[in-house]
Design a protein around this nucleic acid. Structure first.
Lengths: 201, 201
DNA sequence: GGCACGTTTGCGGAAATCCACAATAGGCAG
DNA sequence: CTGCCTATTGTGGATTTCCGCAAACGTGCC
């Protein structure tokens, strides 16, 4: 897993530098982007850390970038920065899943605290995302037939019933079952069920 | 399950009446409370619907009431109303789990929409809470010993292992197992695992 | 054609689960 | 004291699961 990086998106070079300097002085790695469009061109789905986003920018606004990112499956925690934010905008942003919304001028310590909180939050998210990814990888190792059988196992059906439903011999179901457990690296149907339940959590 | 009610907490009788009238005209049941203290004395944990809360009130503020309610296990969705809200306050409220934050003067249609959204949201929460309650009720039917055995079943242990760990005969474990399935109304360890996984979801 | 892989099936046995019938023992309420 | 609940154990059998050994068939690749 990559180390957390705070991505700063602001059209003003002075602001970018000030933020980067502030974060660096507290030991927080950061990377700057001069526009929403620039950041969008990066592969943001793989990133870990957080996103410091100026609301008002020429071209694409921070809000719009936020929406776009969510649309393409990037769930990096976003902290908005704005010079003249109004309550409805802040409320909407947070309801849409923004992590925080800060008005300029900001307090250095408060901002760093929020960034650290966002990074901490994202660490959990990334860990969970990695667990999900590993699980999907295992699931993809299963053949079509094995996935069918697995569903029926999770439905609590006995091998005999599964065999009847699929119109195959019980022995075949047993073989599939064995392969499923092996590939999923579990030793019982209960473990399998618990492993899969982490997906829908 | 009780039908949803919007609880209005505001010290100004005119505001309370206006809100109640507005909601009634849209078919939304409501109940008014003249102060935070008054609402706190109600058994708010059993309520379904939402909470319209004035931020600034004599005595306990809306924000403080909100915190208190969360503290005592009331998770009714809260919509704050404020005459002169600032961004930091709105942000903090939403981060603490408030459902919405509206500035006065409010738009009637927008407010009703938000109330309806909150009520819809709470319907799901109540349904889930009821499921949890039913599950807890079943769990409480289990004796101490049965709960121990259940944990070990969920850990994927075989009856033989459970018997060894508890220092009792395998037959006894089988009896417990049977009782557990009966009381929890499931027919296999897999179903049990899935039933319990709804708790941690 | 040969080879790998997936799906299928059978045989037979070890191990585990499920269950009815039966019984002992302690705690607790009426 | 009696009845109910809980925990415990045993016997014996039906059912199910788990697994090694063996093999047949089709698809797709080299």
């Amino acid at each position: 897993m990559s180390s957390p990086v705070t991505h700063i998106v602001d059209d003003d070079p002075a602001v970018r530098d000030a933020l980067q300097w502030l974060l660096k002085s507290r030991g927080v790695q950061s990377q700057t982007w001069a526009s929403a469009e620039e950041f969008l061109s990066a592969d943001s789905r793989e990133l870990c850390g957080c996103l410091l986003l100026d609301v008002r920018m020429p071209g694409m606004s921070g809000i719009e970038l936020f929406d776009r990112l969510r649309g393409i499956g990037c769930h990096l925690p976003v902290i908005f920065l704005t010079g003249h934010g109004d309550v409805p905008m802040a409320v909407q942003a947070l309801k849409d899943g923004a992590f925080d919304f800060i008005e300029k001028p900001y307090d250095d310590n408060a901002l760093v605290d929020k960034v650290l909180a966002a990074i901490g939050h994202d660490a959990k998210r990334c860990a969970h995302a990695n667990a999900i990814r590993a699980l999907r990888q295992k699931l993809e190792q299963l053949t079509q037939r094995e996935q069918e059988v697995m569903q029926m196992i999770l439905a609590g059906k006995l091998n005999k019933v599964i065999a009847d439903d699929l119109g195959i011999a019980m022995r075949t179901v047993e073989v599939h079952r064995s392969h499923i457990f092996e590939k999923m690296q579990v030793r019982s149907a209960v473990e399998l069920s618990q492993l899969l339940s982490t997906l829908g959590g």
